[in-house]
Amino acid sequence: MDQAVLFDSLRTAIWVAVQMSTPILGVALIVGLVIGLLQALTSIQEMTLTFVPKMLAILATFWVSMDFMTGALISLLHDTLLPTIARGF
């Protein structure tokens, strides 16, 4: 396998990983900021108050975006990785 093809495949795979993780990380960030602001305003320092809503929001986001993630992985496999493997690395 030529180095340029390898690096291009790796770059594409990393970009797909970033695209797939963005919705979940974005929701975790927003929920964490809202809960942190709520805790700062009300002086409630309960650890489960930060953990449980964030986990539920992440789970819901994962469930909603599963179709997008699966499509991105299948697209990566068909467009990038399979032609590279078919050429014999």
Rank of each mutant, 00 (worst) to 15 (best):
A17D: 04
E46G: 05
T61Q: 02
V31G: 10
D8M: 07
D2V: 04
A28W: 00
Q45W: 00
M47N: 09
I58A: 11
V31F: 00
W15L: 13
V16P: 06
S9N: 12
L25H: 04
A57D: 06
S9C: 13
L10N: 05
M69V: 13
D2F: 05
T12E: 12
V64A: 07
L33K: 11
T42N: 06
A28I: 10
P23L: 02
P23A: 07
L6A: 10
P23F: 01
S65T: 14
G71I: 07
S21D: 02
L59N: 00
Q19S: 11
I58R: 04
T42L: 04
Q3W: 02
M69S: 13
A13P: 02
A72H: 01
M69D: 10
L56E: 03
A60K: 01
S9A: 15
A60H: 00
A13T: 12
D2H: 10
A72K: 15
R11S: 11
A72Q: 15
M66R: 15
Q45I: 01
W15D: 13
V31K: 08
P53A: 08
L38H: 08
T48Y: 03
Q39L: 04
Q3M: 06
L6M: 10
M69K: 07
V34Y: 05
Q3E: 05
L33F: 09
L33I: 13
T61M: 06
A13G: 11
V16I: 14
P53N: 10
T70E: 09
V27R: 05
I44N: 10
W15T: 14
A28M: 15
L10H: 03
L56W: 01
M55V: 09
T12K: 13
I14R: 07
T50W: 00
T12H: 09
M69Q: 13
L41V: 15
V52Q: 04
L6P: 01
Q19G: 12
T50F: 03
T48H: 12
F68K: 13
Q45H: 11
M66C: 07
E46A: 11
M20R: 03
T12D: 12
S9Q: 10
S43R: 10
M66N: 11
F7C: 02
L37C: 14
W15N: 12
E46D: 15
R11D: 05
V18C: 12
I44G: 08
A17F: 01
A57H: 03
S65F: 14
V34T: 12
